[in-house]
Computed example of a mutant assay.
Amino acid sequence: MTGLIEARYLDVAGSTAYVEIAGTGTPVLCVHTAGQSGVQWRQTTARLAALGHQVVVPDLPGHGRSDPAPGGPVQDLQVYSDWCAALIDALGLDRPYVVGCSIGGKTVLDLAVRHGDRISGVVAMAAEASPGHVGLSGLRRELQDVAAPSRSDRTYLGTLAALGRSVPAELAERIARMHRREDPEVSVSDLIGWGTHDVRDGLKDIVCPVQLVAGADDPWIDTGRVRATAAEIPDGRHTVLEGIGHYPMEEMKDFAMILHGWLAELNTRDEVIA
């Protein structure tokens, strides 16, 4: 039944991942934004499944219900790209479509560059190929500031204090990190990844179709750079959404149907390439 959403915990690249799966049919992997979780796709998952897709929505390492990444908060979006590739293997997905927004958009664009032969197509929203516009020095300074007694840090320290002495230190750390949502260290690290990720040199070698999407009102995105990215991809196109900002899947009323249309177009183009 497409209305049911299955929740799974499974090992992916050395840590426990939380994944929601709905429907059967063409697999579609959906990747969330910086510091957030798969809950951002809550209005899309069941509806997209009802349209004939197997929808796979993970929480990236350190986000939502997934364990922290083995090496700590991630500052290199290639790590997320490789993790998504490992998730595809773990679930046995056959050349899925991949969709992402913001750091998720950059992550799926990275998948197209480095793992394009394993996927059928990409929808990269609120993303382009060059480094995102953020103040890296300020973000790195903010990583030092997260040691201040903020609300999330008090939760973190309070959780550690409330655990029994028999709990191993590694497990205690993992539990404490899971208790503070949106972890500011994870969010800031994600944004550092956003500001350093650059796949411009690999665009010409992408072998799957790519649809880039930008909201016209998105303050984080230069639509001209989105257009330029699409122009460098052999089968790349772009769409600008009027009146929409940085989070199309949360802002648009019937986003699932719109995404279904983009996926159908990608499928047609993938058949032509094949």
Score class of each variant (00 low, 15 high):
I5R: 08
I5K: 11
R8G: 04
Y9K: 12
L10G: 01
V12F: 00
V12D: 02
A13W: 01
G14E: 08
A17Y: 00
A17V: 01
Y18W: 07
V19C: 02
V19F: 03
A22Y: 09
T24N: 13
G25R: 10
T26E: 06
P27T: 02
T33R: 08
G35A: 03
V39H: 09
W41N: 04
R42E: 11
R42V: 01
T44M: 13
T45A: 11
T45L: 14
A46W: 10
R47T: 02
R47D: 15
L48Q: 04
G52F: 13
Q54W: 00
D59S: 00
G64V: 03
P68S: 10
A69V: 12
A69R: 02
G72M: 06
G72Q: 09
P73G: 08
P73A: 12
Q75S: 11
D76N: 14
S81M: 06
D82S: 10
W83K: 13
L87S: 05
D89A: 15
L91D: 10
L91Q: 08
G92H: 12
R95T: 05
Y97W: 05
S102N: 13
I103Y: 07
G104V: 01
L111A: 09
G116Y: 03
S120Q: 15
S120R: 15
S120E: 06
V123Q: 00
A126I: 00
G132Y: 00
H133V: 10
G135E: 04
L139M: 07
R140Y: 00
E142V: 03
E142I: 03
D145S: 05
P149V: 07
S152N: 15
D153S: 09
R154W: 03
R154I: 07
T155Q: 03
T159G: 09
A169D: 11
E170N: 13
L171M: 14
E173G: 13
R181D: 07
E185S: 10
E185D: 09
V188T: 14
D190H: 05
D190S: 11
L191G: 01
T196N: 03
T196S: 03
C208R: 10
C208N: 11
Q211W: 07
A214Q: 12
A214R: 03
P219Q: 08
W220A: 13
W220H: 12
A228F: 15
A228L: 15
E232V: 12
T239P: 02
V240S: 08
V240L: 12
V240F: 14
V240Q: 12
I244T: 06
I244Y: 01
H246W: 06
Y247V: 14
Y247H: 14
M249Y: 06
M249K: 05
K253L: 02
M257E: 12
L263G: 01
E265T: 09
T268W: 01
R269Y: 02
E271K: 10
E271T: 15
V272Y: 06
